[in-house]
């Protein structure tokens, strides 16, 4: 209706003839005889194109766009998942390392304790041994000392006997007695190496 109103006005405005026939000086677009076919085919073709695009083009593009946004979402999820996995693996490694460290420390501790125990043991044995040897040596020294004393006592008796003998044999002066004791002692000293 509005078009029908507009046309004569527009025709007047462009200086075209208003008798409806295509004037050479007016715009051919206002030739109403072409209107019915163009209107009809515009509507029909448009509706057909809507149907075609709606069937073959729009769903295809929408699918691609959806698939793309889905795959991007999946990538994001995958990245998140692998990060979680990596975090888990890292935690696992940390745990393993700390366990290993602990057991290493434990082993070292034990070793140290064993070494200390071994050393202490060895020291103790050594001390005992040396103490024992010292005791043996002391015993020997004591024994020889005792033997020497015995000897001395024996020789002293012999000397006394000899001296007495000589005293009895001749009357001796005091000076002679002294000389005799000295001689006896000297004799004993000469005999000493024989004792041993």
């Amino acid at each position: 209706m509005i078009e029908a109103l507009l046309i004569p006005i527009a025709q007047a405005a462009t200086g075209g003839a208003t008798d409806g026939h295509p004037p050479s000086s007016g715009l051919p677009q206002f030739d109403t005889s072409t209107f019915s076919s163009q209107t009809f085919w515009s509507i029909v073709s448009f509706l057909i194109l809507v149907a075609l695009l709606n069937k073959y083009v729009i769903p295809a593009i929408r699918n691609i766009l959806d698939a793309r946004s889905k795959s991007i979402q999946e990538d994001i999820n995958g990245a998140k998942q692998s990060r979680v996995d990596a975090d888990k693996a890292l935690a696992e490694y940390r745990r393993l390392i700390s366990t290993a460290r602990e057991s290493a420390a434990q082993i070292m501790d034990e070793t140290r304790r064993e070494a200390i125990a071994y050393r202490d043991n060895a020291l103790k044995t050594l001390e005992e041994e040396s103490a024992r040897k010292k005791a043996v040596v002391m015993e020997e020294i004591e024994q020889s000392k005792r033997a020497a004393m015995q000897e001395i006592a024996t020789h002293a008796v012999e000397i006394a006997l000899l001296a007495t003998e000589k005293l009895l044999a001749k009357s001796v002066t005091a000076a002679d007695a002294n000389q005799m004791v000295d001689e006896a002692i000297r004799q004993m000293g000469q005999q000493r190496p024989i004792i041993h």
Partner: peptide, 28 residues
């Protein structure tokens, strides 16, 4: 009695529409 002739205008509209459709189909 209604004129529904195929004119050059209609023909070129079809060409344009077909071009639009086949451009999309080619792209897809």
């Amino acid at each position: 009695g209604i004129d529904l002739s195929i004119s050059n205008s209609v023909l070129w509209m079809w060409i344009a529409m077909a071009l639009a459709f086949f451009c999309f189909r080619f792209a897809l």
